[in-house]
Amino acid sequence: MTAAPTLDDRVREWLRRRTFHHSRFADVERLVGLKRRQGLRISLCLPALNEERTIGKEILLLKSELMLRRPLLDEIVVIDSGSSDRTREVAAEWGARVFLASEILPSAGARRGKGENLWKALYQCEGDLIAFIDADIRNVRPQFVYGLLGPLLEDPGVQYVKAFYDRPLELTRGKRTPGGGRVTELVVRPMFSLWVPDLTALIQPLSGEYAGRRSLLERLPFPVGYGVEVAHLMDIHHRAGLEAMAQVDLDQRIHRNQPIESLGRMSFGILQVLFDRLHRYGYLEPRRPLATVMRQFLPDAEGYEPAEFPLEEEERPPMISVADYRRRWGRGGEDS
């Protein structure tokens, strides 16, 4: 009689089977063939806010390599939160379909946040597979997209693919700031280790690059703020287990560093979502409501000034529950 696999065994086994390097999918012609045989359409979505310096290059490279040279993508869509710079103009110039988040699904109102853009992207994008990448990537290359799509095209059992990478922060001249993925290592990983150890198998659970099947994404609620990635992981894990997920090594991603105060507020939002899911899925018994104000001390000329930031992670319902969405895409489902 063999012993039941331990958690460690399960995670290791998943890592072995569901962790890839992007180079495995470098034959884009093959991926295009898989896409055609399955009759799929694929959308790439970039949620954006004031990214005029980077978004042009992202769209140019990805359109050139993955639409014009090899038709892996059917569309590139930018969902803009209301940029005050030339983000929308630059994106449109290089061939993206550009939408203001506030003008999509007006009947649902408008919220501010990356999660809001992702949720509304489901309404606007036409793909059966949707890949999301951040608009502030300074070293974007085609593997960022085909690497995420490869597992979905190869294996119908894979529903959701997450990126991981070596993340050097943007460097100031002559000075290297240590770290990267601090919220992951100090907040999310300890919480997953405590409560949902399966999810510790994800090397970068907060990465902004991922891809999924519409059939899954439309059934997920979307927190509009910082917690959307963690919510997705916990919801998918609850619905379908770790087996529905995969992760892909994209090598290196250069992005902007964020100040510690911003990371503190991000952590606060993520913890709200984490505790919400722990309550929702029965890991924890709620004894009293979670607070919704983050308190920080910000340095000023006199010393430190206490500051309060009201942060409540509002949540959008699964898109499939929105009647306008079902009408647009001819989907069955339940009303919200």
Partner: peptide
């Protein structure tokens, strides 16, 4: 030059 300063920006 250092890799992090090797990036090209694409404008309109």
């Amino acid at each position: 030059i250092a890799p992090e300063h090797r990036e090209i920006e694409v404008g309109v």
